[in-house]
Amino acid sequence: MADARSIILHEYPTSPYAEKIRLALRLKNLAWSRVEIPVIMPRPDLMPLTGGYRRTPVMQIGADIYCDTAIILRELEARFPMPALKLPGHEGLAQMVAGWTDGRWFQSSVAVIFGEMGDKVGEDFIKDREKLSGRPFDVNAMKAVAPMMRDQWRARLMLLEERLQGGQGAGAGLYLVGAKPGLVDVHAYMNVWFMQQNVPDFLAKCFETADLTKAWFERLQEFEGQDPETITSAEALEIGKHAAPRLVVATTKYEPQDIAPGDMVAVAPDDYGQVWVEGEIVHADSQRVILQRMSEEAETVHVHFPRAGFLVRRI
């Protein structure tokens, strides 16, 4: 049964970002628990833990809450370093690749997928995603650009093919950097998986000229890992309420805004889902900011965010 030491992933099966973390958990063969959250809001048991952050997935370990895949992967690697995913050649590069896979490539994935299946999407989903993105979720516009976006999507896939062709030494062509799967592979895998789940015929067509990428993708899919235990959102909230956040050094290292422990700030993504989460600074450095939050439902939690891609402002 899940407890304060367990990895708890708040996710839903069709989320491509959640699949990125599920792949990392399989590669590291870690035991974990899951809470299946609704695809759309509301998520009443999760909001007290995150302070309002609403993107998927969220990782919880006791009273420590990790928002965004970048900080989740960083924390998994720090707590469970073996087997490693931060391999030689992946340092720094992995997050650079993530900026591409989670940005421009994901945008073309969305256009292709919803241009294909937009008519099957419910009005509640459309309204939720409009609120999340802050712009219209225009299915007709996606249909209109879908042919061009297919070109864009394939062009990006073929960059993986070039990388695999250009590998050197033992194990060349097995993974994007060397003979073992690492963080760069985890980030690059996401959009290919998303397309396989939704427009498999298009992906199969792309694979006709990308043999190495097809083999790379299938190789990653073969990792099985451990089957997760499913718990309820209420159980996860109760675990957080009765746990204490992990002890961290209350410090800030060079901060351009001169924020310091004890300052009240708000944090939000810089692109979409811009819900500002307020809390007291516990720790900040170039790659992470930790807020302490207190509420009746969750008592005291530490909410962790990455710095790249997230805005911090004083309140």
Rank of each mutant, 00 (worst) to 15 (best):
S15R: 01
Y17G: 05
Y17D: 02
A18Y: 00
L27T: 04
V39K: 10
M41G: 15
D45Y: 12
L49C: 05
T50E: 02
R54E: 12
V58K: 04
Q60A: 04
I65L: 05
C67K: 00
E75C: 02
E77W: 11
P81Q: 08
A84G: 14
G89H: 13
H90M: 11
V97C: 07
G99H: 10
D102C: 08
F106V: 03
I113D: 08
I113L: 11
M117Y: 11
G118V: 05
D128E: 12
S133L: 13
G134P: 07
V139Y: 05
M148N: 06
Q152L: 11
R156C: 02
G166P: 01
G167W: 00
G169C: 05
A170E: 14
Y175P: 00
D185S: 01
V186I: 10
V186T: 05
Y189E: 04
N198D: 09
A204I: 07
C206I: 01
L212D: 02
E218H: 04
R219A: 08
L220K: 07
E222P: 00
D227V: 13
E229G: 02
A236K: 14
A243T: 09
A244D: 14
R246V: 11
V248Q: 09
A250E: 15
T252W: 03
P256T: 08
I259W: 12
A260Q: 15
D263L: 11
A268Q: 14
V275F: 14
E280C: 13
A284R: 13
S286R: 14
Q287A: 13
Q287V: 12
M294V: 11
H302C: 04
F305H: 07
R307H: 02
R307A: 07
L311W: 01
